[in-house]
Amino acid sequence: MKWMGSGGMSFFLRSLKLRRLITSAVVIVAVGFAYPAWRHFYPVTSTNGWDYKVIHKIPMVSALAVDDQGALFVSQEFSNHKGKILRLQKDGSSEEIMAELSKPDGHIFFRGGLVTGQEGGSFPVLWLRDGVKQALFKADNVEGIATDGHFLFAIEDKTPGRLLRFEPDTQQLTVLRAGLDEGEGVSVCPDGRLFYTEKAKGWVKQWQFQGEDLILVKDLNAPGFVQCTEDGLWITEDATHMARLLLVDPSGNLHVILNHLRAAQTIIQLKTGQYLLAEQGRSRILELKRTD
């Protein structure tokens, strides 16, 4: 083989360097695509003592509530008056009970009717009872709704937002907190403790009648809904990827119950050790059960 001259050697080295650069670029691009794909398709995992299964597939599922007959009420969080609420029977059939809503999100049963907010702007909180729809009060971007049986509590998903309390008998609306940063979830425990989330701050707080509210948990990944049960305080993370379902037990310890969720929304209790969770990012409802 004839040995190449200095010019040929220089060309060879430049070509080799170019091929290496191209190879490196291809690898970087492939890894860049692979990481989001891994986050997107990685299955949900549960901790020891809990298991889950998919029971419904519903686009843009968000709020959940169950009536006395066991029917499941589900909100579809579409904007621009395209949102709706469906009633799902145990046999799998469904019917539309409310439509033309703007991002219906939190809802809850109250005094024989369904109360729902609308996160899509300045709209009234609605109360559907015996087929009649009534406006209770007007607020901005209402997402979470809770009740202690007497008062209704609502939180606005905006900056600045408010934590509100409504007394239906007197029609009095009280601002419990103002200046919140994307409030999403609110829950009342049987002992009267009131918890709420600020998604942009990454924390869950306990409201105080006097003084500053107490931070229960912080450094979370977009905390959304909260739900108080005998198991403790449940927290969902409304993050596009790598979201979790968390539980603060009665002793104050934080547990990760489900991992790798996508935009987790409402969690409700069916009975002791059995829950339903809306996973909006995968358009489905999960049933969560304690196994130990």
Score class of each variant (00 low, 15 high):
K17N: 05
L254M: 01
D105N: 14
P43G: 11
I22M: 12
G8H: 11
R262N: 14
S122P: 04
F73E: 00
W3F: 11
M1A: 11
I267R: 01
T47W: 01
S10C: 09
S62Y: 13
E287M: 15
T291V: 11
L88C: 04
T45D: 12
R20E: 12
V44A: 05
K90E: 10
F166V: 05
F225I: 00
V27L: 15
E287F: 08
A135S: 15
M9N: 02
F73L: 03
F78C: 00
E184C: 11
F137L: 08
S79A: 13
K138I: 12
G113P: 07
L21N: 10
G144N: 05
Q206T: 00
E287S: 08
V175H: 10
P124T: 13
V61I: 15
N259M: 03
T147L: 11
T240W: 07
P59H: 06
G183I: 07
G232E: 00
V54M: 13
R129S: 04
K205T: 04
D148L: 06
W38G: 03
S79W: 12
Q208A: 12
A200I: 03
R19P: 01
I145Y: 00
P124Q: 11
A135K: 13
L254E: 01
A34K: 04
V27W: 10
L247W: 07
P36I: 12
S251D: 08
K53E: 14
K17T: 12
H255D: 02
S94W: 13
L13S: 06
L270Q: 09
A34C: 10
L261W: 06
D213H: 11
F11S: 09
T272G: 09
Q206W: 04
A135C: 04
R162F: 08
F73Y: 15
A25C: 14
F209E: 11
E156I: 07
A63G: 15
S251F: 10
I155K: 01
V66A: 03
I155S: 01
M4N: 00
W50A: 00
P190S: 03
H56K: 13
E156D: 05
A37W: 13
I58P: 05
T116K: 00
A135D: 14
G211F: 09
T197Y: 05
G252K: 04
I285G: 02
W38M: 14
D292F: 10
E287V: 04
G183A: 09
G273S: 01
G179E: 06
I22A: 12
K218C: 07
I108N: 01
R177C: 04
E95G: 07
H150I: 12
Q118P: 09
G281C: 13
T45E: 15
N259L: 01
L163T: 00
D191F: 03
F209L: 14
K271T: 12
V31P: 06
K205C: 05
V29Q: 11
G252Y: 09
A63L: 07
D249T: 06
L136R: 03
A25N: 05
L245P: 08
G113Q: 09
L16H: 10
G202W: 08
K289R: 14
G113S: 11
L261H: 04
L163G: 02
V27G: 03
D219H: 13
L86F: 07
F73G: 00
L128C: 05
E237C: 07
S24H: 09
F110N: 02
K138F: 10
Q118G: 07
A37G: 07
